[in-house]
């Protein structure tokens, strides 16, 4: 198990390095340098700016400097908010984004798995068709359409939930739902398909033949095995939720990292955009690692290989 984990960790480090490298060099590819599009900057000011941000050094030196800073948890200064470090902005928004994301992924798992199992057990009935039809809707309709529609219905027309604002638990309801709806749908479909396959498997037949009660056959034999594809989907699901949070935070004016990211992108705040990309990249890699671990716990074949 430790071996397995270390190997996965070994795979994660080059990935992270590539993310850092791509984002670093992409910014440096910007025609004329990061400040070239600033309004009419006098040459001497530009030179000073370049020096201040070490842009006058050779590229490889800048890259090493950036990596060195990253290792110390420093994402560099913001290009736009001169007094802020990117790290501070990220840390400021992270707790909010984390809450949002954790709530969304937990809800997606609980509801998605239940729906998937339910539909699988009632395969080819109305329950199944309805769940799957609705979940197709959930997958197809983008969260930035879902969010306004939910707001329209529950916020404006029915007046049950607050439309904006942040801090009160009621503020979480609409953003979290908008964020996790498509993941609920994906997980439900995945779990249904996998559950149907497992229910047809020979080992579930064996479990029935052993005279085990339905409850044990389902819990111990079927669901456990059917979870595996969902666990492999967990990595992408988390990535989807992180990406989705960018838009959701924007729509609901939630003070998280995503919102800073959008503002930074629109402001052409290079270091901020780069910082958030690297930060999210690292986060996604970390979550993938956790998902791998969970997979290893469930599947002995992986564990011992």
């Amino acid at each position: 198990m430790l071996n397995f984990f270390l190997r996965r960790l070994g795979g994660a480090i080059p990935t992270l390095f590539i993310i850092i490298a791509i984002s670093f060099f992409m910014i440096r590819l910007a025609p004329g340098g990061p400040f070239a599009r600033e309004r009419q900057v006098p040459p001497e000011v530009l030179a000073a700016l370049n020096r201040q941000y070490h842009l006058d050094e050779p590229l490889w030196q800048q890259f090493l400097r950036y990596i060195g800073d990253l290792l110390q948890g420093d994402f560099g200064p913001s290009f736009k908010y001169k007094d802020f470090r990117v790290t501070d902005l990220i840390l400021q928004g992270f707790p909010t984004s984390l809450q949002l994301g954790l709530l969304a992924i937990s809800l997606a798992l609980i509801i998605g798995l239940s729906l998937g199992i339910w539909a699988a057990l009632r395969q080819n009935t109305i329950v199944d068709y309805t769940t799957m039809g609705v979940s197709m809707l959930g997958i197809a309709v983008p969260n930035f359409v879902v969010a306004p529609v939910l707001t329209l219905i529950f916020g404006l027309m029915l007046g049950w939930l607050p439309v904006g604002g942040w801090g009160h638990p009621a503020n979480y309801v609409l953003p979290v739902i908008a964020l996790c709806l498509s993941q609920i749908a994906s997980i439900a479909r995945l779990m249904r398909a996998s559950m149907i396959e497992v229910l047809r498997s020979n080992y579930v037949r064996t479990a029935h033949a052993k005279g085990l009660p339905e409850r044990i056959v389902l819990r111990r034999h079927a669901i456990r095995a059917a979870l595996l594809p969902v666990v492999s989907f967990l990595g992408p699901a988390i990535a989807n939720i992180i990406t989705g949070s960018v838009v959701i935070e924007q729509i609901f004016s939630i003070p998280g990292i995503g919102r800073y990211f959008v503002q930074a992108s629109l402001n052409r705040d290079y270091t901020m955009v780069m910082g958030v990309t690297v930060f999210y990249g690292a986060l996604i890699i970390f979550c993938n690692l956790l998902a791998d671990l969970a997979y290893g716990l469930l599947d002995p074949k992986v564990r011992y290989d």
Binding site: G11, T15, M26, A239, T243, S265, Y270, Y280
Partner: peptide, 20 residues
């Protein structure tokens, strides 16, 4: 492919539009 898989691409597309 495996390595590229775990990269949050949307951010890179945005990065690309920011830069270019």
């Amino acid at each position: 492919v495996d390595i590229l898989y775990s990269i949050p691409f949307i951010f890179f597309v945005i990065l690309l539009t920011v830069v270019f």
